[in-house]
Design a protein around this nucleic acid. Structure first.
Lengths: 287, 287
DNA sequence: ATGAATTACGGACCCCGTAACGATA
DNA sequence: TATCGTTACGGGGTCCGTAATTCAT
């Protein structure tokens, strides 16, 4: 019994005649005729009812066909799952509640673990803790480190939110600014910013937020319009005609921790060191 | 991906080295080495960890092996089930509560249905009714015909129990004899007699029954000893030195019905006719 | 030096496609 | 006569086993 015979049997059942099934399967008619004969011989039972000029499945053949489909389906899913498992084996997935620390951690890890493909994704803290336990994530980055036995956390660094205002803005000269002071003012907001996504909406309930999914469109809008937006010290790059004013509320200040199996402690410390090196002097608050 | 590769992968997992697995599978070592390599190439992922002169499964390989076993097991059971189904398709199974009518019905049916293998088995009435409905039995023979819609019953004939006594027995001259009159007397009994099996024990609670499994041994014992036994008009053959005395209790008189799908009515009538022809004049009570 | 895996090589087998054939509507 | 299935036949791929090679214990 061979896979190609089972597949051809299923094709025959679908199309009714050997000619049609052969044509649809991309083999010659005699080839399929032979394949069915060989399968029948191998099984040792009649699975076809043959008249001089036609052929059809008998009851046993219908059963055989169900099995053929089950087996080929199983073989297909086996291949798929084996390949998926292999991919998971050779990729190292990092989860994070915010994009900025994720980018740097992914980039640092890519250099450290040259064997593996490093990928990152953003999720809620609850999901991250779950995924850390079940092995989906090797590392997770959160503001409140989950305490799971066998896992350890290391302080990674901090991120501070800033208002990005046009120089002409009435608050442009301020050294710091609270959410309440900006409440009611419409702002540009980027969609995919994890933990930062709902904070402004909560703190500034009277403001309208113009949400952008595409990062390039967002930056285009920031540059070309007078509408205030947010920036962060971790990703801050000066924009011509704009000034960055730190948000004074404590909610705008996040401390990130990286968490993984305790066996990864040395890797995590290295990560934290490189992370801090990369952003030394960049943070508005830090030193 | 081919079945032979999956089987060899499973063998390799079982025996640990290619050499051993090849030897146990009856193929050469290079053949199996190649098969594993081809399988690996087909999957497109590494399933082995190779050192210069050793090879072992990696984690993906262990998963692949589980799938290999699942698939080959499924293929094996598919073959088995297809063959079993085919056998069921071409055998006609008759169920009965007693051996005597079963034998004749099987023999008559064998002549009628030359296409099929006719087989018979004895079961309790409850099981027979169940099996008739679910298609296990094409015909069942019972004393109390089950009434199931779509199925019909035909009176087949009757069977009467007799005591088989040595000529010297105190009751040997009787024209008939009740269970209670024989109660307390030890008797020979055949094991595989279906409905007749527990009747004597219920009606003669003080008797001890010497049960024989083997029919030949039973007949030997009947001939060579003075111990009374049972006979029936349906299978009665005179035994030298023994006399048969009919049992007078009504429980010793059974009327058999044959039941099957109503579409089989004409076959059942033919069966009943041939059955009565075969036993015409044989029954002690009949006529 | 023994045992394991792979590579090299010639041969056999099997499956394929083209072509020819038989049968049915 | 057109369609369908089977048989016949030459070709090519592939799988096999033997033999040789490499490597490690």
């Amino acid at each position: 019994m061979e896979f190609y015979q089972l597949e051809e049997l299923a094709a025959f059942a679908r199309y009714g005649t050997i000619s049609k099934a052969a044509e649809m399967s991309g083999v010659s008619q005699p080839a399929m005729s032979r394949a069915m004969k060989l399968l029948e011989e191998d099984l040792g039972v009649a699975i076809f009812r043959r008249t001089s000029n036609a052929i059809e499945l008998n009851e046993t053949g219908q059963l055989a066909c169900q099995w053929a489909e089950r087996i080929t389906r199983m073989a297909d899913s086996a291949k798929e799952e084996i390949r998926a498992f292999d991919r998971r084996q050779r990729t190292l997935l990092v989860g994070s509640v915010a994009p900025a620390p994720l980018w740097s951690v992914v980039s640092i890890l890519s250099a450290l673990e040259t064997e593996k493909t490093v990928a990152g994704e953003m999720r809620q803290e609850r999901i991250l803790a779950e995924g850390l336990k079940n092995g989906t994530y090797r590392f997770v980055i959160t503001a409140e480190p989950p305490s799971i036995s066998g896992f350890s956390s290391v302080r990674l660094g901090e991120e501070n939110l800033m208002f990005l205002l046009p120089e002409s803005h009435r608050h442009a000269k301020r050294k710091s600014l609270s959410f309440s002071e900006m409440n009611g003012e419409n702002m540009l907001l980027l969609e995919d910013i994890g933990q930062w996504r709902e904070l402004p909406q909560r703190m500034m309930p009277d403001s309208k937020f113009i949400v952008q999914t595409d990062r390039e469109s967002f930056e285009e809008l920031v540059m070309r319009s007078e509408i205030p937006s947010f920036a962060s010290d971790l990703v801050y790059r000066p924009v011509k005609g704009k000034v960055a004013v730190p948000v004074s509320d404590k909610e705008a200040h996040l401390v990130y921790f990286i968490t993984a199996r305790s066996s990864q402690l040395s890797v995590m410390n290295q990560l934290a060191r490189q992370f801090r090196n990369a952003f030394n002097g960049r943070s508005v608050y830090a030193v």
